[in-house]
Design a protein around this nucleic acid. Structure first.
Length: 235
DNA sequence: TACCAGGTCCTCG
DNA sequence: CGAGGACATGGT
């Protein structure tokens, strides 16, 4: 018997508490922290987008180092990113890995935002969810997870973000999922269409995947889902 | 020392 | 389509 995914959410929330995603940096601070409230400032929304691109296949710890470099140089700004020399930007985000690719992608996004939306995320986000997703997916370097992270955490529109942790957890729970869209439908058809739930749930899955449902040495004994998970029972 | 980390693109069959 | 390689740093 497969568990109800809304029940799993409540279980994780009770075990771990609110995660407060996505981390952002206040004007007078120097590194991103979890605040548990929607990004109210243009600068925060832009920072979320930068972080979403930088964290592709990369640990958040490394992304933080890159973000701190940008924050120190006052570069969390669409005009500054767009105008920055490729090699200089690459050097600043170096700790996040794939720095040449990612520098190009950051600049591509900044140019797109400037050209099409007067450089303001709020203009981009005025599209309906489906249109916004299509526009984002047209950009080089923005795939489904990055697009959905931007839509959910920066634009605050209801879409469920899938990542490698989520797929692994689903499969270990016993669900058969092919890929991204598949897993996304599974969550969205079994949850209330609620931005707060989607935000919190994804963050909780990352926490679970990072600390318990690890790839190599999963800690099934202390996992909050022990008992209802097939993986812990072998197979 | 390998392997992993909040993916995406490109190429080939 | 789907599999496989490239892109790259830092932690365990």
């Amino acid at each position: 018997m497969l568990p109800d995914l809304y029940w799993v959410y409540k279980k994780l929330f009770n075990a771990f508490g609110p995660q407060g995603w996505w981390p952002t940096t206040a004007p007078d601070e120097n590194k991103p922290v979890h605040r548990g409230k929607p990004p109210g400032l243009e600068r925060e929304r832009f920072e979320i987008i930068i972080g979403a691109i930088l964290t592709q296949n990369t640990s958040w710890r490394n992304v933080e180092k890159a973000l701190e470099n940008l924050i120190k140089k006052k570069m969390i700004d669409v005009n500054t990113i767009a105008a920055c020399e490729d090699t200089r930007l690459a050097e600043l985000i170096r700790p996040a890995g794939y720095y040449n690719q990612k520098a190009r992608r950051l600049k591509d996004f900044a140019s797109f935002l400037l050209t099409e939306y007067d450089g303001k995320t709020i203009n981009l986000f005025s599209h309906d969810l489906e249109t916004l997703r299509e526009k984002l997916l047209c950009l080089k370097g923005i795939g489904p997870e990055t697009a959905d992270s931007i839509i959910l955490y920066a634009a605050q529109k209801p879409i469920f973000v899938i990542d490698a942790y989520t797929i692994r957890i689903l499969r270990r729970l016993g669900f058969e999922v092919k890929g991204y869209e598949d897993a996304q439908k599974l969550f969205m058809s079994n949850l209330p269409n609620d931005v707060k739930v989607f935000k919190e749930y994804h963050a909780l899955l990352v926490h679970l995947g990072k600390n318990y449902c690890k790839k190599q040495k999963p800690l099934c004994n202390s996992c909050p889902l022990t008992g209802i998970c097939r993986f812990s029972k072998g197979s």
